[in-house]
Computed example of a mutant assay.
Amino acid sequence: MEYRRRRQLLRVRGRSIAWVVPLVLLVAIVLLDLNTTERFRIISWIVLVPGIAAAICGVWTTAGFALVSVVTYVVVDSAWPGEYQAGLADFVLVALGGALATLASAVRVRREQEMLHVLDVAETTRRTVLRPLPPDWAGLEHAGVYLAADFDARVGGDFYDIQPGPHGTRVLVGDVQGKGLGAVEAAAALLGTFREAGYHEADLLTVAERLEVRMRRHRLHTAALG
């Protein structure tokens, strides 16, 4: 997921460095404002600092940058003669921008937490339907990567399994026609049947017939549900 990849980019040795970006912007704006003429006052651009923080930092960090931006604005603007000061209007802009940035950060963090929870549920579902297999399970060396069509969903209609038993090792690889929860349910039904029939039945034809019957029963059930 894009959010998790972005979090990794903003970490060094496990610690977040997202705060560096708005801090560098803050320092740059202050230095530029203090080292230019009165015709190029840009201290009000400091409203961008909490805005950037809202996109990549946590709520409290964003609130901290909002507060620091307001204080910095007052200090830097007061360093100029009265006729060159940005004034109250820009102060209100910076204060309001910081408040809105903090609110936006809270909304963003909450949505990301909800999304991570959904991804965890999807990952749990995938591991339940497609059980993890040891590298050399049942005398077979194997490796696989599961990539659902919808990456964020983490689970789809593709399925596979290796089932050791008294009649040998059986391997099943398949793809359910369709997508979404219906495809996952069908894959789970077939895998459950395969794990039992593949172990107990000596004839592969019987295993295939059991899978066919299970698929028909599943279709009857889904049709009855509409």
Results as ranks from 00 to 15, higher is better:
residue 89 A to L: 09
residue 90 D to Q: 12
residue 93 L to H: 15
residue 94 V to F: 04
residue 94 V to N: 08
residue 95 A to D: 12
residue 95 A to M: 12
residue 96 L to Q: 07
residue 99 A to I: 10
residue 100 L to W: 09
residue 100 L to Q: 08
residue 101 A to N: 05
residue 102 T to H: 14
residue 102 T to Y: 03
residue 102 T to C: 15
residue 103 L to G: 05
residue 103 L to R: 08
residue 103 L to W: 09
residue 103 L to P: 08
residue 105 S to H: 01
residue 106 A to E: 04
residue 108 R to A: 03
residue 109 V to F: 08
residue 110 R to M: 07
residue 111 R to L: 11
residue 114 E to L: 12
residue 114 E to C: 15
residue 116 L to M: 13
residue 117 H to G: 13
residue 118 V to L: 13
residue 119 L to P: 12
residue 121 V to S: 06
residue 121 V to E: 11
residue 122 A to I: 15
residue 122 A to C: 15
residue 123 E to L: 07
residue 125 T to M: 05
residue 127 R to N: 10
residue 128 T to R: 06
residue 129 V to Q: 14
residue 129 V to I: 08
residue 129 V to R: 11
residue 130 L to D: 04
residue 131 R to P: 14
residue 131 R to D: 10
residue 131 R to M: 11
residue 131 R to I: 12
residue 133 L to G: 05
residue 134 P to A: 08
residue 135 P to Y: 00
residue 137 W to F: 05
residue 138 A to N: 00
residue 139 G to Q: 00
residue 139 G to D: 00
residue 140 L to I: 01
residue 143 A to D: 03
residue 146 Y to C: 01
residue 148 A to C: 03
residue 149 A to Y: 10
residue 149 A to W: 04
residue 149 A to Q: 05
residue 149 A to P: 11
residue 149 A to T: 09
residue 151 F to S: 12
residue 153 A to M: 12
residue 154 R to P: 15
residue 154 R to H: 07
residue 156 G to F: 09
residue 158 D to L: 02
residue 159 F to A: 00
residue 160 Y to D: 02
residue 160 Y to W: 03
residue 161 D to A: 03
residue 162 I to Q: 01
residue 163 Q to Y: 00
residue 169 T to Q: 02
residue 171 V to N: 15
residue 172 L to P: 05
residue 176 V to Q: 13
residue 176 V to E: 15
residue 179 K to V: 07
residue 179 K to G: 00
residue 180 G to E: 13
residue 182 G to R: 11
residue 185 E to F: 10
residue 188 A to L: 13
residue 189 A to P: 06
residue 189 A to F: 05
residue 191 L to S: 01
residue 193 T to S: 09
residue 193 T to V: 08
residue 195 R to W: 12
residue 196 E to Y: 15
residue 198 G to C: 13
residue 199 Y to T: 14
residue 199 Y to A: 10
residue 202 A to P: 02
residue 203 D to Q: 05
residue 203 D to A: 10
residue 203 D to S: 07
residue 204 L to F: 05
